[in-house]
Amino acid sequence: MVRSGPYDLNVHCIPESGDTIEEVVAVARRLGYSGIAITNPDSMKQLPFSGNVEGFDILSGVEIRADNASKLHGIVGKYRNKVDIIAVSGGSESINRAAVENPGVDLLVNLNIAQDSGFNHVLAKEASENRVAISFDLGDLIHLKGGSRVQAVTNCRKNLLLIRKYNVPYVLTSNARSCFDMRAPRELAALAALFGMSGEEAMAGLTTIPHSIIARSRPPAGYISEGVQLVYNEADTGNIDEGDR
């Protein structure tokens, strides 16, 4: 069950940062989130934590940091049925490409670390087809200073252009490494406005798009597979004519 409010799908806690899941959740609730996804790196021991805490949605996730593209697909397959949100830490263009080509990936994060974001029109098309969401990591706009912040804003502006053109799903995240790195949804929207994102786009990146990502990993009751639906249930109807089959 997806809640209607905003979600931050890229939050880290113990053991990656010094803050416990309780502290992170307390801050997220105070800031007005309906839920968060804990995406600690795959190299660390995962806390199997997923569920509802008094009206707050905590999703399990993983941030995959692969050094090469061929390894990535294996790691994605390993985690797909274990966690709700699979994020891939971007970097080189080859990693980004492998991530957007894999429909099992939910999010591509950390696009701002290099001078060039490694995201272009080819990758944007792939991401749109495979419904891999691009994450705008607004924590970079908070923590970077000087030239690197200028570069981060430039990258975000470029990515926004591609996302509008190719209708790529996107999310706004704080990419928080500690509970003090989180920001309220409206603040994230204001930061996104710095590179030209409209208020409606920002709200979609915080609510409707994360909801659709979560709904994909948490299928509704009675879901069988993409394009398959149960028409007759023998247990319910009882007397289907065997001769017709």
């Binding site: 607004l138 908070i142 923590h143 003090f180 920001r183 409206r186 603040e187 204001a190 930061l191």
Partner: peptide, 8 residues
Amino acid sequence: RAVLASIS
């Protein structure tokens, strides 16, 4: 708001 958000 963005200025306030960028204070860490």
